[in-house]
Computed example of a mutant assay.
Amino acid sequence: MSDEGYDTYDLKRRATLLARAEGDDSVKFLDRQIAVLRTGAWFEALRLKARNNGNSSSAYAVGKHWDPTAYIPGKAGYTRNMWAKRAAGTHVPSRRTCTQIDEIAPGTRDWIEAPCWRLLNCNRALHADALALRELPPPIFDAIFGSEPSDRKLLRTKDLQDICLDELAACVNGIQALCAAVWVLRDARENGDQCTCLEVGAHLHRILLMTVSFGVPFLLRSSLITFFHRHIFPLAGSCDVVINPSLMELQVSADDFLVHLTRLEDEGVVGDHQPGDTSQWRMMLDGSLGDDLCHGLSPGYELRAGSTSADAAEFVFSRTALKAWGKETLDGGSRQPVVPISVRRQIQSSDLIDAMTPAVS
C-alpha cells in the first residue's frame, strides 16, 4: 500500500501501540500510548484539509504543504523530516509548531490539545481529570452529569448509567463522547461494581463503533480500536466475563457497522448523519431497528479463565449464539428483525450450555 492510502499510517500507529511494553510507571506509559493517538489525530486533520485542497496525502506532501521550512534542500531532497514520524504518532510536535500551523489550518490544534484525551488514562486517579471533564461540550457533560453537579468539588455520574450512556451515544461527535464514556467506566470501577463495568463496556462498544465511522476518528480507526482493545475493554469485564477479547473480531464489528450503516442510509431507513446527532445510528445498536443489527454488531464475550459461574456461562453462551446468528443474517444480505424461535430454543438448551461450561459448581 502506498503512502497515498489512508490506512498506511494508521497501521503504523497500531503497530506502535501493540509493540510498546509497559514500564514501571503505568500512568506515564498510558500517556505515551495516548500521545500516539493525539498526534495521529492532529496529522490526520491536517492531511484531510490538505487532501480537500487537492494535495497529495503522503506525510512528505502534508509536511511540505503546512510546514515547508521543515524541508531543507540536500542530497536526498531534504535533510530534516519529522512528518513521517508524526504521521506514525511517534514524534509529538511542539506547541509552537501546532500554534503556527493552526494559524493557516484553523482547528487542527484542537485535535492534539483537547483536554478530553486525558480521560482515556485509566491508570490515573479518577478525579485527577476533573478539569478535563468540565471542559467537555455541554451536551456531552449534561448527558453524564446533568446540570446540578457542575458546582460540586467531586463529579459523580448519574445514578442510572445505562440512561446517561444512551444519551451520550446519541451525541457522538469527534472523540469527546468516547473519552467521556471511558470516564464513566473509571467511575464504575472506583465504586467496585463489576456488573456495572460490564454494562458500561457494552455501551463503550457501541460508542466506539460510531466514533470510528466518520471524520478524523475514521482515519484513526485501527489505532483507536487497538488502544481500546488493549487498555480499556480489559477493565470493562466482570470477575467471570471478558468483553471483546478478540482484536480482529472488534475490528470486523466496526467494519460491519459502517457497511450496514451505508446500506441503511441508501435505503432511507437511517437519515443522513448530522454532526453531533447520532441518535439514528444508536438505533442500529440498541435493537430499535431489529434484533439482527443489535446482536450482529454486539460485543464479543468470553468466560474468564477459572470462572465457575453457571450464570456467566449461560450469559456468554447466549450472547455468542445471538451474535453468530445476527452476523450470519446480515452477511447474507437479509434482515430478520426478530430472533427466530429456532435460535431461542438453541439458547435455552441446557445441554448446549453444559457443553461449553468447564467445571460449574
Rank of each mutant, 00 (worst) to 15 (best):
V184K: 14
D266Q: 15
P299H: 10
L133M: 13
R186L: 03
L322Q: 12
L154K: 08
L219I: 00
S223Y: 07
D24S: 12
L224E: 09
V259A: 07
R124G: 09
C98Q: 13
P358K: 05
A254Y: 00
V242M: 09
Q251S: 14
V269D: 10
V216C: 04
N191H: 15
A310E: 07
W83I: 04
S288A: 15
A324W: 14
E22S: 09
A114E: 13
D351T: 13
R282N: 11
I34G: 03
P139R: 02
T69A: 14
A50N: 03
I34V: 06
A324P: 05
V182K: 09
F43T: 03
S213V: 02
P93L: 01
A359T: 11
H260C: 02
D162M: 11
N191G: 11
R124Y: 10
V270L: 08
L208Y: 06
N244A: 01
C122K: 14
L224C: 06
L322E: 11
R38N: 04
G268D: 08
D311H: 04
S307L: 05
S150D: 10
L168E: 08
D311L: 12
L297N: 01
Y9G: 00
A254M: 06
R20V: 03
L198M: 09
W111I: 04
E44S: 05
G89W: 02
G89R: 01
I140G: 04
R156S: 15
I144R: 06
K49F: 02
